[in-house]
Write a protein that binds this DNA or RNA. Structure first.
Length: 811
RNA sequence: GCCGGUGUGAUGGAAUUGGUAGACGUGACGGACUCAAAAUCCGUUGGGCUAAUCCCCCGUGUGGGUUCGAGUCCCACCACCGGCACCA
């Protein structure tokens, strides 16, 4: 009988669906395992082979965990709000909800076609009002705790999406999604105080089993630095507060720089002798897009203007120093003002050289500071020209000066973060409405919780407006409401939430997806939390992963969830590239469609290949030829079923190899080394071809193969009578038992080295002692040849592995 | 510039973490089967030297080092990939 995947696969998929083979009960005597993959955005293009890699991997893990006796939660859903759907809807005049519905239907079909063991009764969809009701509810809780606020500030504005972006969504000055330039605009936006959680988002990483590069990337993004805030007096009498990580260099501060947006620039306008030049510079800085600003940053050419008419006083020595504005000082970091120490900071040095500022060395130990800044922050430098700090190393001087500043009341230790608050409003239609009402008397009033969900209204046009207002603002019926507080006429917020909102808590909803009273029942949360293993893309490290950790910590603080962190273990997969090793894209014409692969080779081959393709964490190029190799392997497994010896036990010739493979495959799955797990199975099947194969041997291979190629495994399991014999599907069996004692053979092959060079291999009884091994080795003519006339000075024995004879010529 | 990662046959990639480099797959070559091809099965396949699948030598980006022994550890360098970047 031929391996007819085209009829086998739908057969088993239908059976799994009918019998709800993978439905999960909350609560059971078994230990729980919650495996999670990032839910897809249901785009019109359908499932990509890039999706198949992480999904297949976690499916293999989930299936293996079930065989290990775990109660496994392995859910799937759709992150369906977002711009591509909205843009498609605009272009084709179809409602985004309809587009979403159709795309989800297609995705579901494709996911089922690949045989994933999701619990399909727990599907969530972020655009479902029953779901986003709770997204809105979380927002209200954030608002009540003061963590959501509306403010006017310069924001990133995508010129193409006509929408604001979070800092995390701007990459190299362009929109992360569409690549259009991002400019800065003053807009009133809802913000979430993620900065309040900055320290905990760093600290709690220590307890988590995240791969290291995710941890470092998150830490770098949060960007903690410790230093001091110091207050300088301006000649106007105002205080100028600066942040510095080098308070020890305070005596070398020869000028100050404040950002062009700093409030003092306007405040001091009437005192400035060169007001028009200053205003010109401020205007020019404001015009620059983020892209231009990062471009300019690259060549480090400093620009700026001195504020003539106002000066500052260095608090440590009373010296009057000039104040500049320059866009190398950012308004959004620290205090928007710095003390410049050109001798010991490369940026200040470059600026000082250009504008002729004084350079005073206060840390000795480097090159001439007139030629180059000396920035070492360790013990190599010693303080000079700094009165009471002289003679101290930098490391000693920092606490000393900090203490001094505190005593004088002009400074204190300070920690700063690069992380900014999360810009949370979007001026688009297809997102969760923000449940807030503006009342002229009461200000912003949250919608009462019992009025949730606040439904998206039906509109005629979803087009974004050029004015930067949400399309919802044109819906007078919807916008005009009454104040929940005082009953006066009021207006709804018309911005919607960013796509990251729905994905920030979806893993909680899977635990109890149909709950109408809460986002999930406490019982379900207690049972399933936290996610045991979450696999996803590196591109979400500073977006989704950071945002959802923040929300989860907040929910923990208000007593909604039982754990501080949402995910225990986080792993990441590499991208699937096209045949040539380039990124798959329509324009390159190298996109592989999973439907085509499944039609030609079957889902099991597709699954097997995507796991065999290479190191799971690294990018891998698709190879049509290698796909065939995996199909060939499955054919070989299938064909073997027709030549089985009729014994339920492992055959003597294969027993040792079977036990080794059982351990190898289990270990490799746990370590995500799927490629070597499959290689081990291939090697075992090769052994079976060489040695013959019993029914018992074969059953073991079917069980080990079942997480990777479940349809074929089930079909053979059933047709060979194992299902009837052992009861239940292959995926419902226990993982075959591993017996270490069965893996050891009576004899082992050992390498013989002379002077570290391999000269022979010998076969000796297991656990042979040194003398016996050497004696056996000396029987080998090659070994004799290299030891002839030599004196053995040392023998190194690695038991059952290797013996190394160290020789030297006799005197 | 800073942080992280990678570099192994023709090729995708293995290597129990310091112990026989190249598992497994692809490709190539040879054989069996076939009228033939495909499919399948069985071999061979790092380089040099060679009549030889005898020997011997070389070989994991480059140059040093530690060690009985290094793809693996240390130092310096080169190349490529990813992240961050005027963050005081």
């Amino acid at each position: 009988m031929k391996y007819d995947f085209a009829s086998i696969e739908p057969k088993w998929q239908a059976k799994w669906q009918q019998e709800k083979t993978f439905a999960t009960e909350t609560g059971s005597g078994k230990p729980k395992f919650y495996g999670l993959v990032e839910f897809p955005y249901p785009s019109g293009q359908g499932l990509h082979v890039g999706h198949a890699r992480p999904y297949t991997a976690m499916d293999v893990v989930a299936r293996k965990k079930r065989m290990d006796g775990y109660n496994v939660l392995f859910p799937m859903g759709y992150d369906a709000f977002g711009l591509p759907t909205e843009n498609y809807a605009i272009k084709n005049h179809i409602h985004p909800a309809k587009v979403t519905h159709d795309n989800i239907e297609n995705f579901t079909k494709q996911l089922k076609m690949l045989g994933y063991s999701f619990d399909w009764d727990r599907v969530v969809n972020t655009t479902d009002p029953e779901y986003y009701k709770w997204t809105q509810w979380i927002f209200l809780q954030l608002y009540k705790k003061g963590l959501a606020y509306k403010t006017t500030m310069p924001v990133n504005w995508c010129t193409s999406c006509k929408c604001v972006l979070a800092n995390e969504e701007v990459v190299d000055g362009v929109c992360e999604r569409c690549g259009a330039p991002v400019v800065r605009r003053e807009k009133s936006q809802w913000m979430l105080k993620i900065t309040e959680y900055a320290q905990r988002l760093i600290d709690d990483l220590d307890e988590l089993d995240f791969i290291e590069r995710v941890k470092t990337q998150q830490k770098n993004w949060i960007g903690r630095s410790t230093g001091a805030e110091v207050t300088f007096k301006a000649t106007t009498g105002d205080d100028i507060v600066v942040f510095t990580t080098r308070p020890d260099t305070l005596f070398g501060a020869t000028y100050m720089v404040i950002s062009p947006e700093h409030r003092y620039v306007k405040q001091w306008a009437d005192k400035l002798e060169n007001l028009s030049t200053v205003e010109e510079y401020v205007a020019a800085a404001a015009r620059k897009s983020d892209f231009e600003r990062t471009e300019l940053a690259a060549d480090k050419e400093k620009t700026g203007v001195e504020l003539r008419g106002v000066r500052a006083v260095n608090p440590v020595n009373g010296r009057e120093i000039p104040i500049f504005i320059s866009d190398y000082v950012l308004s959004s970091y620290g205090t928007g003002a710095i003390m410049a120490v050109p001798a010991h900071d490369t940026r200040d040095w470059a600026f000082a050289k250009k504008f002729g500022c004084e350079i005073i060395e206060v840390v000795a130990g480097g090159e001439d500071v007139q030629k180059q800044a000396f920035t070492a922050k360790d013990d190599t430098g010693v303080l000079v020209n700094s009165e009471f700090l002289n003679g101290l190393t930098v490391k000693q001087a920092i606490p000393a000066i900090t203490k001094w500043l505190e005593e004088k009341g002009i400074g204190h230790e300070q920690v700063n973060y690069k992380l900014r608050d999360w810009v949370f409003s979007r001026q688009r239609y297809w997102g969760e409405p923000i449940p807030m009402v503006w009342c002229d008397k009461c200000g912003w009033v949250p919608l009462p919780e019992e009025q949730l969900p606040l439904l998206l209204p039906e509109v005629d046009s979803y087009e974004p407006t050029d004015t930067g207002e949400s399309p919802l603002s044109k819906m007078a019926d919807w916008v005009n409401t009454t104040c929940p507080h005082c009953g006066a006429p009021a207006r709804r917020e018309t911005d919607t939430m960013p796509q990251w909102a729905g994905s920030s808590w979806y893993f909680l909803r899977y635990m109890d997806p149909h709950n109408k009273q809460a986002l999930a029942s406490r019982q379900a949360l207690d049972y399933w939390s936290p996610v045991d293993w979450y696999n996803g893309g590196m591109e979400h490290t500073t977006l989704h992963l950071l945002y959802s950790r923040f929300w989860h910590k907040f929910l923990y603080d208000i007593g909604v969830v039982p754990t501080k962190e949402p995910y225990h273990k986080r792993t990441s997969h590499g991208m699937i590239l096209g045949e040539g090793g380039e990124k798959m894209s329509k324009s390159r014409g190298n996109v592989v469609n999973p439907n085509d692969v499944v039609a030609e080779f079957g889902a099991d081959t597709m699954r097997l290949y995507i796991m065999f393709i290479g190191d799971f964490e690294k990018a891998a190029a698709w190879s049509a030829k290698a796909v065939k190799g995996c199909k060939r392997f499955l054919d070989r497994v299938w064909n073997l079923s027709e030549q089985l010896a009729d014994s339920g036990a492992y055959s003597a010739a294969n027993e040792s190899a079977i036990h080794k493979t059982i351990k190898k495959v289990a270990d490799d799955i746990e370590a995500m080394k799927f490629n070597t797990a499959i290689a081990a199975l291939m090697a075992l099947v090769n052994d079976f071809y060489a040695n013959g194969c019993s029914r018992g041997d074969y059953a073991a291979v079917l069980l080990m193969l079942s997480p990777f190629a479940p349809h074929m495994a089930e079909e053979l399991w059933e047709s060979l009578g194992f299902a009837a014999q052992r009861g239940g599907q292959a995926c419902q069996q226990a993982w075959p038992a591993y017996d270490a004692s069965k893996t050891v053979a009576a004899e082992v092959n050992m390498a013989v080295q002379v002077g570290g060079k391999l000269r022979a291999t010998i076969t000796v009884p297991l656990d042979s002692e040194q003398d016996a091994v050497v004696a056996e080795a000396m029987k080998d003519p090659k070994v004799r040849k290299f030891t002839e006339g030599m004196e053995t000075v040392k023998v190194i024995l690695v038991k059952n592995k290797l013996v190394n004879l160290i020789v030297r010529s006799k005197k």
